[in-house]
Nucleic acid binder design. Structure first.
Length: 734
DNA sequence: TCTACGACTATTTTT
DNA sequence: TAGTCGTAGA
C-alpha cells in the first residue's frame, strides 16, 4: 500500500509543498525558525519514495546530531507506516564511519580501527607533545588539539598546512604530523579524521566514488548552515554532476562558526550548485507575532543575510517582558518568583526554559529554583558515555576487543592502582616507541625478556591474564555468542573497579555505581544489526563503535522540570515560556566576541535563536551589576535589547537605555518591586544610614528581593553607589 | 600512592 | 570566586 500524494501534501503550506515536490535538480530550502524544517525533509523523503518511486536505497539523509537523525527516521516510518531499511539516515560522522567500515582497506585503515573521542584525542596529543619534548606550558594541549581539528575540518593534513616559516606555526604542524603518524600506525580515527578520511576515500578511489555516486541519487542535508568545509566538500563530491541535492537550513541560525561551520556554504549554495531552486519558509507556527517581530528586529541588524521575514498567523500575544535587576542575585530571584507565578497559573514546569550564554550562570538560577522547590533539569555537562567510570570500564572492554588499543591500555593499566607506577609505564612506552609496537605487545616483550622489576612483572602478567580471561569468559553458552552484559559485569567485578570507586565519598560512589548499572543495561539492550554482522564486527566492536558516536542522552523524563540550558543547546527546541538571562554587554554578546564584526553577528544570531524558542511568553533580564571571576562589574544592558522595537517591550523594571540606569536616588517603582517590598521583613529600610566594613557609611536608596536575596543600593559617602547582597555585606545600621 | 596546596584559568559543543 | 590540574612531599 502506498501513500497517496494527497496524504503527503496535506497539512503543508504553499511553500512547503513547493519544496517537497520540487523537480529542480538542487533545492535550497531556507527555513526560518519554527517554519517546519524537519517537516519538509520528512515529507520530501516520503514524496520521493511514494510519488516519484525513488528507491529508499538511493536516498541519503544527513543530520548533525543523533537525535535529529533518530527523529527523522521515526517520522518517516510513521508516515509511510513502515520501516525504511535501505535508506541511509545518519549524522555526518555516522555516515562517514559507515563508509570507512565498509571500505576499510581502500581507506587505508586496519580492519579493527578504533575511534578516539575528544578526551582520548586530548590525552594522545599530550603524549605527542611529551614525545617531541615540548613544554606543555608553551604548547597547551587544548590549543594544539584545536589547531589539529581546525585544520582537519578545513580538509588539511599536516603536510598541507601552509608553513609561513613561523616557528609557532611550524611546531604546531610538527605535532600535528607526529599525532597523525601515531594514529595511522595504531589505527586510530578521531572525529575530524572520520570526515576527512571518508572524503579522501571518495576523492582517491574512483571505483568507490562511482559506486556511491550511482547509489545516492538523492542527497538531503539538514541544518546546512552548520556544515564545515570538509562536510560541504563531501556532499559536493558525492553529488557529482547528476545527483540531486536538497539542503535545508537557516543562515540566521548559524551559531557554530567557532567550531568550523561556515555560513558561506548556505549563502553560496546557488553558486556552488547550478540549477538550484530556492524556497523560503517564512511562516512560523511556533511563536506569537510580537515575539517574531522582536526576533526580526534584532536579526535585521546583521549584514550578511539571505534575508527572511518570519510571520505568524497567530495573535500578537504578550509583549516581551524586560527586567533590569541590580545584580545576578536579584535576577535569579526575579526568575524564580516569576516562574512560581507561572506555575500557579496554568503552566507546567516543562513549559518553561531558562536560557543563558554560559554554563557558569546556571548556579544561582538553580539555587533560586531549589529554594522554591521548583523541579528543574540542567542540560549539558558530562554525558553518559563521557563519565569517568564509564570510560574506565569501556577502556577494559576496548582492550578485550583489541589488545593494541593503546588509549585503553594507558587508561587502565594502573586503574585501579596495581603497582604499575610511572617508571614501569614509561619503560613500556619507550620500548613500544622504539619497536613501533603497541603498548600491550611491548609490555609482553619486556616481561619475557625479564626487564621488569619483580613487582611490576607480577602485576603486568596478572593484568595480561585478566584481559585474556575477560575475553574468554565473555563467550558463554552453547552458541558461543559474546554476551556484552556479562562481559561488563565481569569487568566491574574482576578488575576491582567497584571497590576503587567505593573509596570515594559515598554520594559520588553511589552515582558511579548507578551509572555502571546503567551501562550494563545499555549493553543488555544493545542489538547487533545485520549490517554490523555483514561488516564482520563482533558484538563488542559494534557496541564500542556506537557508543563512541553517541555519547548518550542523560536526560530522563519523568516528572515535568523547568529546563536550564545554554542558548546553543536550545537550538531546535521550543517552549511556551522562555527566560533569557544575563542580557548584558560583555556577557551576551560575550566579551570575546564584541570586537570582531563577524563574531558579533554570530552572537546576534544566537540572540535570534534564543528569542525564537519562545511560543507565548518571553522574559529577558539583565543585571546592572554582576560578579564575574570574583570581581563585581558594573554592566550595561545588552545592545540586543535595544535592537528590539520599543513598542514590543514591556519594561518591568529598570531602563535598557543606559543613561538613566542605576544611580538614581529615587527607587524605581514598579508593580513587581512594590510587591516584594510589601513582604520585606528585613531590618533595613529605604533612607536608612548603614555602615559597611570597607565602604564606610552610606544611605540605602533602593531595595529589591527578599530573604537571602535581599539587595540594597547604597550611596556611600566615599565610594558612590554600590549594590550589595544583604546576606553577604554585613551592613551595620547606624 | 595518596594528599594537600598552589597555580592557573575562566564561551558556546557535537561527533 | 571556584573549580581543575599538576607537583611536591609524606
Amino acid at each position: 500500500m502506498t501513500l497517496s500524494t494527497e496524504d503527503i501534501l496535506k497539512n503543508l503550506n504553499e511553500n512547503q509543498t513547493k519544496a517537497v515536490t520540487t523537480d529542480a535538480q538542487h533545492a535550497l530550502v531556507l527555513a526560518g525558525a519554527g517554519s517546519g524544517k524537519t517537516r519538509v525533509l520528512v515529507h520530501r523523503i516520503a514524496w520521493l519514495i511514494s510519488a516519484e518511486f525513488v528507491s529508499p536505497y538511493s536516498i541519503l539523509a544527513v543530520t548533525f546530531t543523533n537525535k535529529a537523525a533518530a527523529e527523522m527516521r521515526n517520522r518517516i516510518a510513521f508516515m509511510l507506516k513502515r520501516e525504511i531499511r535501505d535508506m541511509w539516515i545518519g549524522t555526518f560522522h555516522g555516515i562517514a564511519l559507515k563508509l570507512l567500515q565498509i571500505n576499510t582497506e581502500a581507506a587505508g585503515l586496519p580492519k579493527n580501527f578504533q575511534i578516539l573521542d575528544s578526551d582520548d584525542q586530548y590525552r594522545l596529543i599530550r603524549r605527542c607533545i611529551a614525545d617531541l619534548e615540548l613544554d606543555e606550558k608553551q604548547w597547551p594541549p587544548r590549543t594544539v588539539q584545536a589547531f589539529i581539528n581546525d585544520k582537519k575540518n578545513d580538509g588539511l593534513r599536516a603536510h598541507e598546512v601552509e608553513d609561513y616559516g613561523d616557528y609557532n606555526n611550524q611546531t604546531l604542524i610538527k605535532v600535528f604530523g607526529h599525532y597523525d603518524d601515531h594514529c595511522q600506525r595504531a589505527g586510530l580515527v578521531d572525529f575530524s579524521e572520520m570526515l576527512l578520511r571518508a572524503h579522501e576515500l571518495l576523492l582517491n578511489d574512483e571505483a568507490v566514488l562511482k559506486k556511491y555516486r550511482q547509489r545516492f541519487s538523492h542527497i538531503l542535508v539538514d541544518e546546512f548552515q552548520d556544515t564545515n568545509a570538509i562536510q560541504s566538500a563531501f556532499i559536493q563530491l558525492l553529488a557529482g554532476k547528476n545527483n540531486k541535492v536538497l539542503v535545508v537550513g537557516d543562515d540566521d541560525q548559524s551559531i557554530y562558526a567557532w567550531r568550523g561551520a561556515k555560513v558561506e556554504h548556505i549563502l553560496e549554495f546557488q553558486t556552488l550548485y547550478p540549477n538550484t531552486a530556492m524556497y523560503k519558509l517564512e511562516q512560523n507556527y511556533r511563536s506569537t507575532q510580537n515575539i517574531l517581530d522582536a526576533a526580526n528586529g534584532v536579526i535585521a541588524n546583521n549584514k550578511k543575510r539571505l534575508g527572511k521575514d518570519l510571520w505568524s498567523a497567530q495573535e500578537k500575544g504578550d509583549l516581551v517582558a524586560v527586567y533590569g535587576s541590580h545584580s545576578e542575585f536579584d535576577e535569579a530571584f526575579f526568575v524564580g518568583e516569576t516562574i512560581e507565578g507561572l506555575l500557579s497559573e496554568d503552566a507546567r514546569a516543562d513549559d518553561i526554559a531558562i536560557l543563558y550564554r554560559s554554563n557558569a550562570q546556571s548556579r544561582l538560577l538553580e539555587e533560586a529554583l531549589l529554594k522554591r522547590s521548583i523541579p528543574y533539569q540542567i542540560y549539558g555537562g558530562l554525558r553518559f558515555f563521557e563519565r569517568l567510570e564509564i570510560k574506565d570500564v569501556l577502556a577494559y572492554a576496548r582492550l578485550v576487543n583489541n589488545r593494541h588499543d593503546d588509549i585503553g591500555f594507558e587508561r587502565v593499566i594502573n586503574t585501579p592502582t596495581r603497582g604499575m607506577g610511572l617508571k614501569t609505564i614509561n619503560l613500556i612506552r619507550n620500548y613500544a616507541q622504539m619497536e613501533q609496537s603497541s603498548l600491550w605487545e611491548s609490555g609482553k616483550k619486556l616481561l619475557k625478556a625479564g626487564k621488569l622489576s619483580n613487582r611490576a612483572a607480577t602485576s603486568l602478567a596478572a593484568f595480561n591474564n585478566l584481559i585474556d580471561e575477560l575475553e574468554d569468559n565473555s563467550f558463554s553458552g552453547d552458541d558461543n555468542e559474546q554476551n556484552l552484559a556479562s562481559l561488563f559485569t565481569d569487568i566491574i567485578e574482576r578488575t576491582a573497579l567497584k571497590d576503587h570507586y567505593l573509596k570515594e565519598p559515598p554520594e559520588k560512589a553511589q552515582t558511579r555505581l548507578e551509572n555502571l548499572d546503567e551501562l550494563i543495561n545499555a549493553a543488555e539492550m544493545f542489538e547487533v544489526t545485520d549490517e554490523d554482522l555483514a561488516l564482520g564486527l563482533t558484538p563488542l566492536a559494534a557496541f564500542l563503535a556506537q557508543v563512541s558516536l553517541d555519547a548518550g542522552d542523560t536526560t530522563q523524563v519523568n516528572e515535568p522540570h523547568v529546563q536550564l540550558m545554554t542558548l546553543h543547546s536550545a537550538k531546535g527546541l521550543e517552549f511556551p515560556a522562555v527566560f533569557i538571562v544575563g542580557m548584558e554587554q560583555g556577557l551576551f554578546p560575550h566579551q570575546n566576541s564584541m570586537e570582531d564584526h563577524n563574531k558579533l553577528q554570530e552572537e546576534r544570531r544566537l540572540a535570534y535563536v534564543g528569542i525564537t524558542r519562545a511560543e507565548k511568553k518571553l522574559f529577558l533580564s539583565y543585571a546592572t551589576s554582576r560578579r564575574m571571576r570574583g570581581k563585581i562589574n558594573a554592566c550595561q544592558p545588552s545592545q540586543f535589547l535595544r535592537e528590539i522595537p520599543k513598542e514590543l517591550i514591556k519594561q518591568m523594571r529598570g531602563n535598557i537605555h543606559p543613561a538613566t540606569t542605576y544611580s538614581s536616588h529615587t527607587p524605581i517603582k514598579t508593580p513587581y518591586q512594590s510587591q516584594t517590598q510589601n513582604t520585606n521583613d528585613s531590618p533595613y529600610q529605604l533612607g536608612q544610614t548603614v555602615k559597611h566594613k570597607s565602604f564606610g557609611e552610606g544611605v540605602i536608596t533602593d531595595m529589591s528581593g527578599k530573604g537571602d536575596y535581599l539587595q540594597v543600593l547604597v550611596q556611600f559617602n566615599d565610594f558612590g553607589p554600590k549594590v550589595l547582597a544583604v546576606k553577604f555585606a554585613k551592613l551595620e545600621i547606624v
